[in-house]
């Protein structure tokens, strides 16, 4: 495996309801792929925070990450200002398996699962549909970015304050009725992933999901971030989100554990 670790400068912070940082890290950006993550040190905390890569700009030598304040660690991280240095390890994990750009893809993101779908959808241009779900209209991020790179955006919110009032799976069903894609990528709450995976299985559509788990080392050394995965012989083992994932083929993921 190949990753780097060092201090890198945050060059841009975009306004919005999530923390939206651009980090100048040309050596990491040069080898980063959609679906991988970076592991960021938070001063005063034992565990780094794994944050998925939202966009890779190899020419500019930057990565873009988005995260929500979820606890004490991300609260500290959210105080970062433009020009500050962050201790970053990355890229870590295996990214999404991307097909040829002329294939049709659907990316499904729920809440903080939306950011990694931007880089994933990028390689498909107009052949990507982004089904994006948020709690409410004030939690919406990145929809303009998806549109700008050619993706068709289908939006929903839990409370109906923007887009479809309901679940991403409602929109996925609607899209499947129009046309079945070659692949579906999904990231979001596990319950959402479960239903997306079920719908894909019913329609015979390939599906990859990105999982989350409490994580320590980030590189596969401590075996902390275990997740149950079905093996080819049908038995279930514990693989690790940081090294074997975070992306797994949906049919192998054990959602009810």
């Amino acid at each position: 495996m190949e990753y780097l670790q060092g201090t890198y400068r945050v060059t841009k912070i975009r306004p919005g309801c999530m923390c939206d940082y651009t980090i100048a890290c040309p050596d990491i950006a040069a080898i980063s792929k959609a679906g991988q993550f970076v592991h960021i040190r938070v001063p005063g905390f034992t565990l780094r925070r794994p944050i998925s890569i939202c966009e890779v700009d190899r020419q500019a030598g930057t990565l873009r990450i988005l995260f929500d304040i979820r606890g004490e660690g991300t609260k500290v991280l959210a105080q970062t200002k433009e020009g500050d240095l962050l201790d970053v390890m990355g890229p870590l994990g295996n990214g999404f398996e991307l097909l040829d750009a002329d294939k049709k893809a659907i990316v499904v993101g729920g809440g903080i699962g939306v950011p990694p779908m931007l880089e994933t959808a990028k390689s498909y241009g107009k052949n990507a549909t982004a089904i994006l779900g948020f709690r409410s209209s004030d939690k919406i991020v990145l929809t303009d970015d998806f549109t700008a790179q050619g993706s068709r955006v289908m939006l929903c919110t839990d409370d109906g304050s923007a887009g479809h009032h309901g679940l991403v799976t409602d929109l996925l069903k609607q899209r499947f009725e129009e046309e079945l894609p070659d692949i579906v990528y999904a990231c979001g709450p596990k319950i959402m992933l479960k239903f997306v995976a079920q719908m894909c299985a019913q329609h015979g559509v390939r599906c990859q999901v990105s999982l989350e788990e409490r994580m320590a080392c980030g590189v596969g050394a401590c075996l902390g971030c275990a997740t149950p995965i079905r093996q080819e012989d049908g038995s279930v083992t514990y693989l690790h989100v940081c090294k074997n994932g975070p992306v797994f083929d949906a049919e192998r993921v054990v959602f009810d554990d």
């Binding site: 034992t46 660690g73 320590a216 075996l223 902390g224 275990a226 149950p228």
Partner: peptide, 22 residues
Amino acid sequence: LGNPPPRIAETPSGMLNSVGLQ
């Protein structure tokens, strides 16, 4: 196989683990 997740919890200046010898 080790223990079911979660296996990690952060604590002040430390962490708990229960990997279970996977």
